[in-house]
Design a protein around this nucleic acid. Structure first.
Lengths: 357, 357
DNA sequence: GTGAAAGCGCTAACAC
DNA sequence: GTGTTAGCGCTTTCAC
């Protein structure tokens, strides 16, 4: 007799729209209109319906609504990894916006090219499941966006940019310029670079752009680009450590390093310390993000408004879904250099450059 | 004529189960059985159906399936905050399991008591939306679980424990004991504690339990408990910094501090450094979690298998949903002390304790 | 302003 | 082994 005895049983059946209709003495159509705030409902009727619905603890079944409308009231966040500081911040910002607007936020890990392809495929798991998706650091081109749009999906990209769909990005050239010019201005000439894989399977373009910006800045300063000074840190702490360890055992190691993320920069600091080097005396390091802990370890970094980027992306997506697309298509967030304690002038070394005439 | 012209239009209508049925020359029921691997389908028929479905790029509409079955094939992760390392690790582990099993993972931020209450309420947003939910560090009691079960929802808790629903936890007493005994064994007697709010609005019990374990360990060692030595760090870096700053300006400051999370420990390190103190010479600090960056800053900490905890929780939940509940109800994950560079013996001070007879 | 009824696309009896 | 059919609970014309 105890309804809670079998946890898998539905227990006391929940009120349906019909129950509300009967109890309020109106039709289900009226209940539907009244509860959703649609016009053509007498104020008195609406009030009564709302009243009854509350008493019955009525909640529309989302699945039924989805089936009838074709809209899922859910959006997806497609991410390459979850255990990254940047992504969890973005997610945090996006979640707040989505929940405020009554949208479910579904997290989809897209690790590796097969996963990416299958997500973008014709018979994707996105189908009818969400109304839109924001791709974080995942390569989608205009064809992909068009194909998704054709199926009624709104799209926003982060990191990556396409011509057709809204995005929120930062000026990657500027990021690299700020970091590299800072090191140059301190007198560094041998500057290491810690980034992602050369040929990223997910076509993640941010590292490519930061690298280009780094090179451009070096060239502008007349500093020769040494391919040996580039390490692959995969945007993780340990990846950064390993990559930095590699650079440090070069015959002519860098006196400074630009890590494309703070997490890699932390790894670089670890590698330096493991080698008995002092930061910034022996080697300077600058990162990107302004991670929570950057202030703790005194990391010089290029700051970006991470959580804000997440909420803007979600906003852009929801506006697109609801048709309130008055917002500009491509948002560019500001970045700025935060100088802390991991950067300083290089130690005077055998002044090779001074040999010049 | 371009179907992609209006992105909000459905475009070329996707195949429904009926289309597949017609094309395969069978009934929709057979298609449904064939595609879901149910018995009572001739091998040849099944093969043909699968073939046709593939050609038509058919994907069942999840909303329709949900409405018909009452199962949503989705689960929720209810979290108090998103920008915590611990939570994003757990999420990462859970996402992998869910996606492998074809379940959607919905993230729900539950910040503050009103949000908690509304989530647990009769007419909750959980209703019919998910098949189960894992509560991370959110207070749910047996009544809550019973009420949710009554509505057909599976529940798993993390951090918190109830009598009736599965959980994955760590031995919080052990955590505190490992940390505090380590400090005691080094000779510390004035040991600070960095935790959460005294009266947590979400009823988050972990800090309470760690605090109890800390006190018990101190008492066992005959060390008097000084309430002044307890700071509220809210499990964030900056919270830890502020709390630690408070402890450090005490007339008789602690020589060591036990932070209930690595993030607070990082904050504590920052506060110490800002005060010109050296770690561990002037003050030792030990945390909990073994954060990615703990190794970088050399933090002594009590390690727990965070991502694994997330995947186990998801597994427990899915097994509960599918009825494959052969797994034990309460999983306890192992913890261990990782000694690094932030702890050492205290400086010899005016030996007040030596005045004793 | 309100109601009747036809779906939305699928699943699950039940019949054959 | 396969088909028929009645829902699942909501939205949305179209009448009135």
């Amino acid at each position: 007799m105890d309804p809670a005895a079998d946890p898998s049983s539905p227990g006391p059946r929940r009120a349906t729209i019909e129950d509300v209709a009967v109890a309020a003495g109106v039709s289900v159509a009226t209940v539907s209109r009244a509860l959703r705030g649609l016009p053509h409902v007498a104020p008195a009727t609406r009030q009564r319906v709302v009243q009854v619905a509350t008493e019955l603890a009525y909640r529309p079944d989302p699945a039924a609504a989805r089936l009838a409308t074709g809209r899922s009231q859910a959006v997806a966040l497609a991410v390459p990894v979850l255990n990254s500081w940047y992504i969890s911040q973005v997610e945090s910002g996006a979640e707040a916006v989505c929940s405020a607007d009554g949208y479910d936020l579904i997290i989809m890990g897209v690790t590796g090219e097969p996963a990416r392809r299958s997500l973008l495929a014709e018979e994707s798991s996105l189908h009818r499941r969400v109304d839109g998706v924001v791709f974080i650091d995942i390569a989608v081109d205009d064809d992909d966006v068009a194909r998704l749009a054709e199926r009624g999906l709104a799209v926003v990209t982060l990191g990556n940019v396409t011509a057709t769909c809204p995005s929120v990005t930062i000026d990657e050239d500027e990021v690299a310029r700020l970091a590299t010019e800072h090191l140059l201005s301190l007198g560094h000439r041998r500057i290491g670079l810690l980034g992602g894989q050369r040929d990223d399977p997910l076509g993640f373009s941010v590292p490519r752009r930061r690298r280009a910006g780094h090179h451009a800045t070096l060239e502008r300063a007349g500093v020769e680009i040494d391919p040996d000074l580039e390490g692959i840190g995969n945007f993780s702490v340990m990846g950064g450590r390993d990559a930095m360890a590699g650079l440090l055992q070069l015959p002519d190691p860098p006196t400074a390093v630009f890590a494309m993320s703070d997490e890699m920069a932390f790894g670089a600091m670890l590698a330096a310390r493991e080698r008995g080097l002092d930061i910034p005396r022996d080697v300077s390091v600058v990162g990107v993000d302004d991670h929570d802990l950057s202030i703790v370890v005194g990391l010089t970094t290029v700051q970006q408004p991470v959580a804000d980027i997440g909420s803007r992306a979600a906003r852009l997506l929801l506006d697109q879904i609801t048709g309130a697309a008055a917002t500009p298509a491509h948002i560019r967030s500001p970045v700025s250099l935060v100088v802390r304690a991991t950067t300083s002038a290089p130690l005077p070394r055998r002044q090779e450059t001074a040999e010049k005439p």
